[in-house]
Amino acid sequence: MILRQPEWARNVLDVQDGEGDVELDGRKQKRQSPVTELVVALSDQRVYREVVWSLKRGLRDARSEFSFVRVRGLNALAKFMSSAVSDEKVIELFRDCQSYRELQVVPVLFDYTLAPRKRLAKNLSILTPGAQAASSDVESSPTSVEVALGLRVLEGCCLLYNGCRTTASRHAAVSELIDLFLAGGPSVQSHCLDGLLALMLESSSNQKEFERVHGLRKFAEMLRNNHLDPVIRLRIAEFIVILISQILPSANKGFGPAGEDSKPAWMTKWAQQELVELLGEESSAVVDDIIDAGRHKFSDQEGQQTATLRYAQQLLHLASSF
């Protein structure tokens, strides 16, 4: 996206910054000339056009029958997500765009990249029996590169706008990502874990889906598999630590009596029981420490990452000796 102001707009806005404040109803407000108001309005319209154009271009390619074209579209969407993070105006416009069906990103991700077999099955069900064989090879299957890109875009959508998590829940997103993790390679598996965390953040529907499909049990059992790639085992352990210390407690509000926000909600208690059952009674103290760490506010991100890694290594040690 090209979101830099044109030279003429920057010049007008720079002049506006030097005009000073005016007193209005006892409050100081920025003095703004009619010309400046027009420039600001034109700039906002330009950003809106850029956002819509970026989404349309990326989604057009992401709907292609061919994987290499879809990869191009997903790359464009991923770049858009990266640029949107630093601009609150773009984030606001992205959220507004997701109310229009033709600009919604999440349904396209699942229909063409993350769960295309469901769309094909639906399309084939309305065809005559003789046409099914010819239609089964209509589009190329997603490659691991395409799936990894799709997972990155899904994570970005969910972090930019919580409405995308609700849309994803209608596509059984949690179940689909767990299936992708079980069938994918290391690069896909790593992005699946990040995507699952983004999906379940402050989303009770996706957290309930995770419980329904026994997601935590599946990951804890993989943690006990000493033959699994050590890097992926560590990522799974970090995923579990972040899940029970930060993600599941985010759904505490609304559960339990008022004034008991500091106590684990039912989802956290469920996770605690699952882990102790799978990793043994010795894990109980570690799990308690992880939950308590979720209430601690770290002064910097590095301190939080260090604590997460330490607890993940403790879980790995317990799983290996179980």
Rank of each mutant, 00 (worst) to 15 (best):
Q273I: 11
R117H: 08
S141K: 12
M1K: 05
R63F: 03
L318R: 09
I291Y: 03
S144H: 11
A9T: 01
V12E: 13
R233V: 12
L223M: 10
V105M: 03
L103P: 11
W53F: 13
Q16C: 14
S175G: 10
I91F: 05
M267F: 14
R165Q: 10
L149W: 06
L42S: 13
R235C: 09
R95A: 14
L315A: 06
A84G: 07
R63E: 11
L38E: 15
D179M: 10
D292Y: 09
S86N: 05
A237W: 12
T143P: 05
Q132Y: 00
Y311D: 10
E209R: 08
K253Q: 10
P249K: 02
L318N: 02
A285F: 07
W266Y: 12
D14A: 14
K218S: 03
I232W: 09
S86L: 06
K56A: 15
V22H: 01
D44E: 08
G185A: 14
K56G: 14
V51R: 03
D17I: 07
D289C: 06
G156D: 11
P264A: 09
R152G: 06
L159T: 12
R10N: 04
E176M: 10
F322R: 11
K28F: 15
L13S: 05
Q301G: 12
G184R: 04
L3D: 04
N225T: 10
G18H: 12
C164H: 03
L199D: 01
G73S: 09
A258T: 08
R170T: 12
V108A: 01
A121N: 09
